[in-house]
Design a protein around this nucleic acid. Structure first.
Lengths: 128, 128
DNA sequence: ATAAAACAGACTATATTAGTCGGTTATATC
DNA sequence: GATATAACCGACTAATATAGTCTGTTTTAT
């Protein structure tokens, strides 16, 4: 029940992009890495996943960098965590094998409130 | 963000004890292990942790076994998960180092709703 | 041309998880 | 009081996941 460093870094990077968000402005990874004190090589992998989930876009070449794919208001913590982390608390094999599992309702409820909590927060709120 | 097998096994073992709960009745681990299809040696370690958290008690020797430390109604999923799993989603080092962390409020909210969800379920409900 | 930046895949080191094994201690029953 | 049963305990191992590194290729503004 721990959030990985990957996800923590990813969320912080996204908040950085949201805080400095401005139309047509891009942010090279080096800047985010330094400013947020995240290992550059690792962040590169993370931002790539975020890009594949359509949360950020990139501009290549000199003066290139990354930027949010849409307004901070429209991106939720749930979007970001969902892109970087397994969000189902369990893969209950028992449920499949035996048709029912005494613990299933617990994990279902947990998954739902986890989702609700994260979906209720958007990036714009986190910039304040 | 995954619940460990240890916790899944632990919860199922506890539900087993709750389902068959009867005053002065004890359940040898072998029985729980077979019935719930949980590796015996592993379950032994798990139940020991549950005992140290005062969720179950033991009776040693022949005809011995484990039993719930109190009524199923009084034991929550939160008690069980809390005994077996790290329940804080992050140990945000940044928060300590920089005084503030842009992501902190997300993890706090997550932790709270995780706790709320699990605390709202008791063992007695899970026996139905 | 060249330099800055994104993109990509393979690799390594560390930590965590899941489980095993070999024993010791307590106690009901014969 | 011997014995068998079941809890208790600590050290060990195997597998997997996490966290990061390294070496390069591609794109593009200047």
């Amino acid at each position: 029940m721990q959030i990985s460093k990957k996800t923590q870094y990813g969320l912080r990077a996204m908040v950085y992009l949201a805080k400095n968000f401005k139309r047509n402005k891009v942010f090279p990874l080096r800047e985010i890495s330094k400013s947020e004190d995240i290992p550059f090589d690792f962040l590169e992998k993370i931002i790539l996943e975020l890009e594949k989930s359509d949360l950020v876009k990139a501009k290549k070449g000199p003066n290139g960098g990354y930027f949010l794919a849409c307004s901070p208001r429209k991106i939720t913590a749930g979007d970001i965590v969902g892109a970087l982390e397994k969000t189902k608390p369990v893969n209950c094999l028992i449920c499949g094998r035996m048709g029912k599992c005494s613990a299933k309702s617990v994990w279902n409820k947990l998954e739902q409130s986890l989702k609700d909590a994260l979906d209720s927060i958007n990036l714009s709120e986190l910039t304040k």
